[in-house]
């Protein structure tokens, strides 16, 4: 059974009903001490087929629901499974420590690296502490500090993106949210060490791009990355936020779309039913993808690396000359 049972994905309803029936039959069989294993196996097989059918035909909006699933693994869970010896570092040295953006040191297959990423909470209490993973300027300034530290000590940066957006708040504005986002983009663009970006959940506009400039940008299958939330887009286009599903199609924000546009380099497949159903398998897939990226990037010298990074963001736009 999935562990996000209190967050219902509408499209999973038939599957959930089937799974519920399996449980009922199991309980019934146990209580009555009847052997119903044949029946159970049959329905279980049906459930697997149904699950595959559902997950092979997800709409962009359904993918977004998976990306926003409250049980979707967060950075700290991935760190435990992908890296060794993580040491968290805190603070921007200017104002305060922002728990919505986590950073630190770790080994990736014995290579020392700097890790950065948005950190959502795993329950309400944690989410309040983490501000739902939406950084203030100090979060991005911590990221900048740690990136520059990585450059100083010549170690790669691995950045994890999962954010609805940079926090829209009074204090965030007062402390220069726009400047912090822009500065982080500037620093990442010129950082003289390899940068691998992994978009694991939500890629919410500027708040995502702020730590999303890299030599290789990898993206989980059901993650999304967009200039605007589908709800925001829908309320503009059709004056109705409930048309978000239509807007999600229009915006071309899925991992597949972004691969086609050349915005990302690789789609990391998720386990059947989404990352929240199998954290370990997801972490393993991410780890392999990072490893492959390393193999490509570590062959390049710094100048080649920077030239390619520049070229990539330079050429991604689509315009015409008339």
């Amino acid at each position: 059974m999935g562990n996000g049972s209190n967050y219902n994905l509408d499209f999973e309803k038939p599957l959930q009903e089937l799974e519920k029936r399996i449980e009922e039959i199991k309980t019934f069989a146990e209580e009555k001490r009847i052997d119903m294993s044949e029946e159970i196996t049959r329905i279980e097989a049906k459930a697997v087929t149904l699950k595959k059918e559902i997950y092979n035909n997800l709409t962009p909006w359904q993918k977004i629901q998976i990306a926003r699933h409250p049980k979707r693994p967060t950075l700290l869970e991935y760190i435990d499974l992908i890296f060794d010896g993580f040491i968290e570092l805190h603070g921007d040295r200017l104002f305060k420590d922002d728990p919505a953006l986590v950073g630190g040191l770790a080994y990736f297959n014995e290579i020392p690296v700097t890790i950065l990423g948005h950190q959502k909470g795993r329950d309400t209490k944690e989410n309040i502490y983490r501000n739902f993973g939406m950084p203030h300027p100090e979060g991005y300034r911590k990221a900048i500090r740690l990136m520059k530290q990585a450059e100083k000590f010549k170690r790669p940066v691995i950045s994890f993106v999962d954010v609805a957006g940079a926090y829209p708040g009074k204090e965030a504005e007062e402390r220069g949210q726009g400047e912090a986002v822009a500065r982080s983009i500037m620093e990442m663009a010129k950082l003289r060490v390899p940068i691998i970006v992994v978009i694991t959940g939500e890629g919410g506009s500027g708040g995502a791009l702020a730590i999303g400039v890299g030599d290789r940008v990898l993206m989980l299958e059901y993650a999304y990355y967009s200039v605007i939330s589908p709800e925001g887009c829908a309320s503009i286009l059709w004056k109705n936020a409930s048309d978000a599903s239509k807007a999600a199609e229009t915006l071309r924000l899925t991992a597949r779309d972004l691969l086609d546009f050349g915005v990302i380099e690789e789609v990391i497949p998720e386990p059947l039913g989404g990352a929240h159903r199998d954290l370990e398998a997801t972490a393993k897939a991410i780890k392999e993808a990072i490893q492959n990226s390393f193999a490509k990037l570590l062959k390049l010298n710094t100048e080649e690396l920077l030239r390619m990074r520049y070229k990539k963001f330079r050429e991604v736009g689509r315009y015409i000359e008339e």
Partner: peptide
């Protein structure tokens, strides 16, 4: 802000302009 009608490609212009300023 960034132009919604070009989706992610508009967002990428933030990086494109910033990195050109670096040079």
């Amino acid at each position: 802000g960034a132009r919604m009608q070009e989706g992610i490609l508009s967002l990428m212009q933030m990086a494109a302009t910033c990195q050109a300023l670096n040079r």
